[in-house]
Nucleic acid binder design. Structure first.
Lengths: 175, 175
DNA sequence: ACTTGATATGCAACAATATGCATAACAAAT
DNA sequence: ATTTGTTATGCATATTGTTGCATATCAAGT
């Protein structure tokens, strides 16, 4: 459901091909929702079948046709319905917590490596957040209401990441 | 994969039926991994087929047989393999971030309701954490290394929840 | 008497995600 | 010349998770 919604909202802002959308998932949408190219192409096709997206096929010489999708009125209505209804509680699913739960069988060495790798990937994420902040949100006071939305999510992302990092250091120190 | 691991670890500590396991998912495992009873029964059957679990059928009068599962040697080996290999980066998938991403089409009223509902459910979770802390971890200094594992995950859960709550209040105040 | 909730188990259909494979041209670097 | 990376699209299969339905007993409350 959320994937459909993300596809609809990004194509509503700017129509584009599956490949265009894929690039957006790799950049601006990277901190919102992950999807593989296979999943994106298939989901776009489904949304087209359901007439939530229209599709204009642009023939190209010597390579596959480029299919440009744009949102339809039904697509907008679908998106607004999704936004209006509350999400409900999200199920808890944390593989790392599962490993901690299995503590007595988790070798010290493996745990240490796991935490170091996680810390590294969280640091990468934090740097990515910092780059976004410097580029787009250098002056928070001057942001419009609309611009504040991504700024808020960025700040939450930063704080959650920081919370994780602080905790990892404590666990590494502890054992 | 993680579901298999959680089933194996809990049955390794204490053999039991699908129903027993379900009760554990509703209590002690509630903050580790969510699974429905349908999924649990199906997965136990699969693990039995794969001989990672053995199964003793205990006939009962006038009601379905009780099937008691216990871990096998292959099951232990499987679990240890899973614990030894690093998890790798977890894909980002946050429906709430997706809604923030769709800000310009998200009505103020719906956003407000969404955040209030989320705040309430996070508060419930925080109270649940506090109850666990008071019951099991009243004196952190006296914990053994093994007891510290669930304590660590509890603390991370508390802090992440608190980070969310602080952020929600800010967003509610802001707009 | 009747309903509700706990005990105890599942099947079937569907949706979402992951993984492996496949094609084909072009540009840039070695 | 050949490899590597980018552009551009998908299909097939398997795994994982969701939702609706189904059965049957017993205890406790109304």
């Amino acid at each position: 459901m959320a994937l459909k919604a993300v596809l609809l909202i990004t194509l509503q802002r700017e129509p584009g091909s599956g490949y265009d959308v894929l690039q957006r998932f790799k950049t601006g949408l990277a901190h919102v929702w992950h999807a593989s190219h296979q999943q994106i192409y298939r989901e776009l096709d489904k949304l087209h079948m359901a007439e939530l997206l229209s599709c204009e096929t642009i023939p190209q010489q010597d390579r596959p046709d480029r299919k440009v999708y744009r949102i339809t009125e039904e697509g907008v209505a679908f998106l607004e319905t999704w936004l209006a209804e509350p999400l409900g509680p999200q199920p808890v699913r944390s593989p790392l917590f599962a490993k901690f739960f299995a503590w007595e069988r988790w070798p010290d060495e493996a745990r240490h490596a796991e935490l170091l790798a996680l810390r590294e990937s969280l640091n990468v994420r934090l740097r990515s957040y910092q780059a976004i902040e410097a580029t787009w949100f250098a002056d928070p006071a001057s942001l419009t209401a609309e611009e504040r939305a991504p700024w808020h999510t960025l700040r939450l992302g930063q704080r959650l990441t920081q919370t994780w990092l602080t905790w990892i250091d404590e666990v590494l120190t502890d054992g």
